[in-house]
Design a protein around this nucleic acid. Structure first.
Lengths: 178, 178
DNA sequence: CCGGATAACTTAACATGTTAAACAAATTTC
DNA sequence: GAAATTTGTTTAACATGTTAAGTTATCCGG
């Protein structure tokens, strides 16, 4: 019921020469961005159902998870740590605050800055989700191999560092002044 | 303008004991999903500006790129190859068709199926973007190292395979019948 | 002080991710 | 062969990604 995928027989006989066409296509599906995308999706696919059962999205979980590591944190710092863009974070914080999962106030020294912390309710939620998450992570580690996993993360980190210094070239219009 | 990042001095003196707190936090920022996310973002950050200058998003580019490899392709197959969910693909195809970058018809043998192909206009666009894309890819390869890049992709592929067989455990409500 | 430049968010607007539901065509069942 | 089921695709609805514009608060030079 699940195994067979392509009713290939009905493909009609008109998709060009497979050989000549397969070349570029393979290149595409093997590109680095695609590899990273698929790998990440394969990982997140394991976590999403559990998070969903607790009413959390991946990003909301990232935020709460980051908040458990500090007493309080400023919004900008939180965006950096949870790897979210400002606008996304802004929306999510609004929602999490409405759900009483976080608390929020403004810094006394600088009224522009927002200071966020996790609430006791949020903490309970984290504690409810954590066991399952850790179990999943443990199984991933076991399946892939702890050693190999560490090596993979090292390589990913080095890739980041390699590209960090790389100038982003627009090659296009409008680049002069502003 | 670019180097220094954190106006750390203004952090006020109230963020809990850094030592006790740093433990879990590091765990979080070093999680596999975060590593993959950051790595992919580091890569895509290089490509986005160029694509944007040609009026393309990353996903639109993926679709056109996939279409250059075949004469025609069914929507479902395209979704699989370009790694997009049905709804996203449906919206994007609507837009690309309106821009005359692709052409579309229905399969004669099965009126449910849509058959897509790239238009000559789309092909020209691809040819306009490709050089820059390839140059960026080449520089990434050079910076990170061709050998290491290949190894990384192998490891990513194996990660995918490792998790492919892993059952997704919801652990929550509603799982009995439907 | 005052007005211009910055900084830290927040909103807005548009595109995609994600899940559920709707729809129509094809396939299976009885 | 009509009803029930399945399949391919699209809509709907809500959440996030991404870039550009606002808003309010600081900072800074005169």
């Amino acid at each position: 019921m699940t195994g067979k995928k392509s009713p290939n027989g009905t493909r009609s006989d008109q998709e060009g020469t497979p050989d000549a066409r397969r070349g570029p296509m393979r290149e595409f599906s093997r590109s680095l961005p695609m590899s990273l995308l698929r790998a990440r999706e394969a990982v997140m696919r394991q976590f999403r159902p559990s998070l969903r059962n607790h009413g959390l999205t991946e990003q909301q979980w990232r935020i709460l998870r980051a908040l458990t590591a500090v007493d309080t944190i400023e919004v900008t710092e939180l965006a950096r740590v949870a790897f979210l863009l400002g606008p996304s974070l802004s929306r999510i914080l609004r929602d999490l605050e409405a759900r009483d999962l976080i608390e929020r106030r403004t810094a006394e020294a600088d009224l522009r800055r927002g200071v966020v912390s996790i609430s006791s309710k949020g903490l309970k939620l984290i504690e409810a989700v954590a066991p399952t998450s850790e179990a999943i992570y443990a199984e991933i580690t076991q399946r892939y191999g702890a050693r190999k996993l560490a090596e993979l993360q090292d390589m990913l980190g080095e890739l980041e560092r390699s590209l960090a210094a790389m100038e982003v070239a627009g090659e296009g219009d409008a680049e002069a002044d502003e």
